[in-house]
């Protein structure tokens, strides 16, 4: 039963992937821009969910890995003329390596400091980029070669989103899922069952960070120019948090609903950036209080006949 529903989910994902692959031929430029952003956001939210859902750790460090991916991609492409796919693979390695490196500090005290630790890490990286001239300093760096055209970038984003979604499916529908949920629900009891909690959490953190770093690389390539304030800005973390809380923490469809909602809200209030963020804040407060499982959870509660699909979460 578990395997068949997992296969069905993979089937749906692949079908959606194939369908969207042809989007550039019928969607206009604006539509493609929006779709690109939704895909990047979807990747970020899926990765966040993977971490929170499997470890219970709440990260505010999305921007840290977005920025890292952006700088690694640009650095490799500018300095060594690395092709984009290889550059993105290196982004993943760098993201995972950084996660592994900082985990001893961040996993202390069972998560109390994880959130602020990720926040500080993003700030630390930003300050390094600002101050080290080799990284372009405060003004940032340009991509020397021409970025691929939007339809190609869209395909990159689509592949990345597919990888993130498949990763979530793999974690939610396979043997790994019981291990992850066990660690999240009761670390001590899980250890007594032979599960290694630290390694499990670290694995989820590395995977999640690698995915975010790839998304950062794709996003940066599309921009063509990056600077530390934007790439390491808190805005990424705010958007991710908005998405998962609006969509529903740990719910399979949460990231998609959240990404659509946040992108739509951003478009609707594009001319009022401050009001946009403030309104997002109000929505968060209201949802945390009254709909802790987000829009998807709320709809599920309204319609009890829809099958509840909880993710690795």
């Amino acid at each position: 039963m578990k395997t068949s529903s997992g296969l069905a989910e993979v089937g749906v994902l692949l079908a959606a992937f194939v369908l969207l692959w042809f989007a550039p031929s019928f969607a206009g430029d604006y539509g493609l821009q929006i779709a690109f952003r939704v895909l990047i956001y979807l990747t970020l939210a899926e990765s966040w969910n993977l971490l929170a859902g499997s470890t219970g750790l709440v990260s505010l460090g999305t921007s840290c890995f977005v920025g890292l991916g952006a700088y690694v991609a640009f650095g490799l492409m500018n300095a060594f003329d690395v092709p984009l796919p290889l550059g993105l693979a290196c982004c993943a390695v760098a993201g995972g390596a950084l996660a592994a490196l900082v985990s001893p500090a961040l996993f202390r005290l069972r998560g109390l400091y994880f959130t602020v630790g990720t926040l500080a890490l993003a700030e630390l990286l930003r300050l390094i980029m600002v101050n080290v001239s080799a990284f372009g300093g405060a003004s940032g760096i340009f991509l020397q070669k021409d970025p691929p055209p939007l339809p190609v970038l869209f395909h990159y984003a689509l592949v990345v989103a597919l990888i993130a979604s498949l990763a979530i499916t793999a974690c939610a529908r396979s043997r790994i899922s019981v291990i992850l949920r066990a660690v999240r629900d009761d670390e001590d009891a899980a250890a007594q069952m032979g599960v290694r909690p630290y390694r499990t959490k670290l694995g989820a953190f590395i995977l999640s960070s690698a995915l975010v770093a790839i998304a950062g690389g794709v996003q940066a390539t599309k921009l063509g120019a990056i600077e530390p304030y934007g790439m390491f800005g808190l805005q990424w973390s705010i958007d991710v948090l908005s998405m998962v809380i609006i969509g529903g923490v740990g719910l399979r469809l949460g990231p998609l609903v959240g990404a659509l909602f946040v992108v739509a809200l951003g478009e609707a209030l594009a001319d009022y950036p401050e009001a946009h963020v403030a309104i997002a804040g109000v929505i968060l407060i209201v949802l945390i209080r009254f709909a802790p499982r987000g829009v998807v959870g709320f709809v599920e509660n309204l319609a009890p006949f829809t099958q509840k699909k909880r993710v690795a979460a």
Binding site: R175, I179, R181, G194
Partner: peptide
């Protein structure tokens, strides 16, 4: 699933 945790971990 509670049993699977132990099975799959070892």
């Amino acid at each position: 699933e509670n049993l699977e945790v132990a099975q799959y971990s070892i």
